[in-house]
Every structure is written in structure tokens, then in C-alpha cells.
Nucleic acid binder design. Structure first.
Lengths: 212, 212
DNA sequence: ACGACCATACCGACTGGTTGGTATGCACCT
DNA sequence: AGGTGCATACCAACCAGTCGGTATGGTCGT
């Protein structure tokens, strides 16, 4: 009935390794992240690592999935997602992303963007995983944007998908600038601009949409 | 009077190494870029490499400067920079950045953004160099934005500096998405959104500014 | 109940290829 | 003669991945 043999908290070792991999790779990048770094961070050894993952690359791909799943849960649980107005949800998303720019850089930067920078040519499987999870996340945002567009800017030339990807680009770029500046302030400024962009996109057509 | 000993074109070896370093690091990232990769790309050997650079890190920092100098020259020579209207220069910058999204990914992505992702924690000197050159480039753009703002949106709440950094974020993020998707199309779409943002920022106040 | 048997989980020493960096020497120029 | 520019050969550290071994717990025949 219970699955932990020790007195330890029941967190599975593979989860510990994945959490550690996410953290180490976010700090140093994929290539510079040593397997032993990940093991040390997880409080385990290489034996455990290669018991759970066939290779470092396989671990990175699993870490990408782990990271994406955590992110999904985080955004699902965020209060803005319950707002009835899709425009408010889109702006709420931006505000929420700004609000979680807290703590050290490896705690809020994006594993997927970090990894794909280094791995896009040399590790096709990693590139594919990052592409998939970034696109999935953008797709969720695109739904809200599409709804908001239908209501507030139905005739605009841009597509919801491209606007969602644009948001992801702003975020990824904001993380790069935050790393360069060694602090999240620049990133917050960038999100202010993104918010203003969405405000303008959704303001022009219908200040107050009439209910049908 | 001439400085080349062979029949080869007179390009200095150190320039060849820097060009090679830029290309290799843009392809694989800093950590995965081996010194021998750079040497091979330059058609030289490690003897030459360590004759010109004290370490791999020193080469990377020199490559960042080299890359920034090349970029400066490129944008100085671009036709948009001669436009009299600052708003046209800002939009021309975006258009120009979109226009140079050609060829393979390592040919148009940003060395600075790529490096700082991996190096921001472990290699402070690289981080500082990337920060400096990104900020300098943004500063040049900020001048045009400031002029355009003074003319077209003098009362707006945002600062030219933050708008310039926002543009850099969009670009950096667009490169990440392009790497994830393995093609420049997403990046071009992102630049369309950035252009639209600037259009809106500069349209509201004064459609046609009166000359003083 | 009990031991034989096996699977899972994990440890940690070891290996072999890799890689940043060094030592040395040579060719050419001034 | 001496210095610059570069090649070749080499070294020592590093690191992904291997492997033999241990511990634990579940299953099944008896």
C-alpha cells in the first residue's frame, strides 16, 4: 500500500533526479551540467542515475517533460485562469509571468529555452522535446488569445498562434536579458511592454463588447 | 607592406579564429564548442589558438567583441540608418532584422544571447561581455526610439531604453523559437508583432507631426 | 512459515575516450 | 640573433558510461 521503504519522505528517486536535472541545467546549461552534478543535487549517485536513465540525453528529455508538466500544473492552478473574460485571462497570464520572476535566476528561467539553444543542432531529440513543450504551452495561451481576439479584435490581421508564440519569444528573450544583467528587473520591464501590446491589440475594435 | 606569407587572402589568423569561434559557438553553444572544433573551422591548429588566446574563455570574450563589432558595422551600413524620420529608422531596424533572417541558423542567431544562457553563472567575464555588447546595441536603438518618442509619443509612460531592451528580448526569444522549430519563419512572425507594437506606440499621439 | 529465487533500487570504483592546456621546435621575417 | 607565428607531440584532468556488488522486498512452492 505504501511504496517507501525508508523513513524518508516518499518522493521517488527518479523525481529527485529530474528536479535536480532541471535545476542544474537551468544553472549551467546542458553541456556543462555533469551527471555527477545532478546526482549530487539529488543526493544520489551515478548508479541511481543510470539505473533510471539510459543516458544523459535521455535524462534531459525526461527533465523537459517533467518541467513542462510542472509548468502546466502551475498555470492551471493560477487564479487568472478562472477569469471569465478571455482578454483578462491573457493579461492575467502576462501579469502572472511577471509575478513569478522571484528568487534566483535558475528558479524562474525556462529549461526548454536554455536547452534548445545549445542542443538544437547536436541533439535532435532534445530539440524536438523542447519544441513540443514550448509549442504546447503556447497553444494553451493561443486558445485564450483566440477567444479574446474573436471578441475584441475579430478583424485583426495577426493570428492567435503567432501572438502566443510572440509572447513566448518575449519571455525567452526576457530570460536571456535577465541572465545577462544578473537580475529579473529587465524581464519585468519586457513583460510590461508585452502587456501594453496586448492591451492595444484588444482595445481598438470594441471597448465594451455588446453581449449578443 | 603586405602581411600574408602565403598566397592565401590576407585575412589574419586571429580573425579566422574569431570568425570560427563565432560560428562554432553559435552552432553548439560555448561548453560544447571544443577548441579543436574552432581550430578546424579556422584551418589552424591548437598551437595557433593558444598563441592568440590565453584560454578558451578569453577566446569567447574576444569573439563576443568581434561579433559585436561586425554587427555594429552591419547596422551602420544598413540603408535604414540614413532615413531622416526616427520612427522610420526604428521600423527600418525591425524590417532589416527580419530581412537578414536568411541561410542557416548559426548565420543569423546571436552569439551573445547564446553564450550568456550557459555562462551567466559559471563564467562571470563572459556574462559581463555579453551584457555590455547587448546593452550597447540596445543603446544605439534606444537613441532612435527616444527621438521617435519625442516626436510621436512624448507623453507615453515607457522609456526608450526599456523599449530598446524589449526589442532585443523579442529578437533573442525569436532566435530560440527558430532553433526549436529549426527554421526562421517563427522569428519573422515575431518581428511582425514587434513592428506592429512600434507602429502602435508611435501612431496615437501625432499622425503627422508639425515641423516646429 | 520458510527458504529459494528473482526483480528492483542503489552504490561506488573503474575505464577509456575526450579535451583544455603545455612544451618544444621549426620557418620566416627584420 | 632574436622574435613572431604556427605546427606537432604530449600531458593530466575530466567525465559519461560500465560493472560487479549489496540491500530490500515480493512471489511461490512446500
Amino acid at each position: 500500500m505504501n511504496m517507501d521503504t525508508k523513513t524518508e519522505p516518499a518522493q521517488a528517486s527518479s523525481t529527485k533526479l529530474l528536479d535536480a536535472a532541471v535545476h542544474v541545467i537551468r544553472s549551467k546549461g546542458y553541456s556543462a551540467a555533469r551527471v555527477e552534478d545532478i546526482c549530487a543535487e539529488a543526493g544520489l549517485t551515478k548508479g541511481a542515475f543510470f539505473h533510471h536513465f539510459a543516458s544523459k540525453e535521455a535524462c534531459a528529455i525526461a527533465a523537459a517533460a517533467h518541467f513542462a508538466a510542472n509548468a502546466d500544473a502551475l498555470f492551471d492552478a493560477a487564479p487568472y485562469s478562472l477569469l471569465p473574460d478571455p482578454k483578462a485571462r491573457v493579461l492575467g497570464y502576462v501579469d502572472f509571468r511577471k509575478a513569478i520572476l522571484q528568487g534566483e535566476l535558475p528558479q524562474f528561467t525556462c529549461l526548454l529555452g536554455t536547452m534548445v539553444q545549445e542542443a538544437y543542432e547536436s541533439h535532435p531529440a532534445i530539440r524536438a522535446a523542447c519544441d513540443r513543450y514550448i509549442s504546447e504551452h503556447a497553444g494553451r495561451l493561443a486558445s485564450d488569445i483566440a477567444e479574446a481576439k474573436a471578441r475584441y479584435a475579430p478583424d485583426a490581421a495577426w493570428t492567435p498562434e503567432s501572438a502566443a508564440l510572440f509572447s513566448q519569444a518575449v519571455l525567452q528573450g526576457a530570460f536571456i536579458l535577465a541572465k545577462a544583467r544578473h537580475g529579473p528587473k529587465v524581464a519585468a520591464d519586457c513583460l510590461d511592454h508585452l502587456r501594453r501590446y496586448f492591451e492595444r491589440l484588444f482595445e481598438s475594435g470594441a471597448p465594451e463588447p455588446a453581449t449578443p
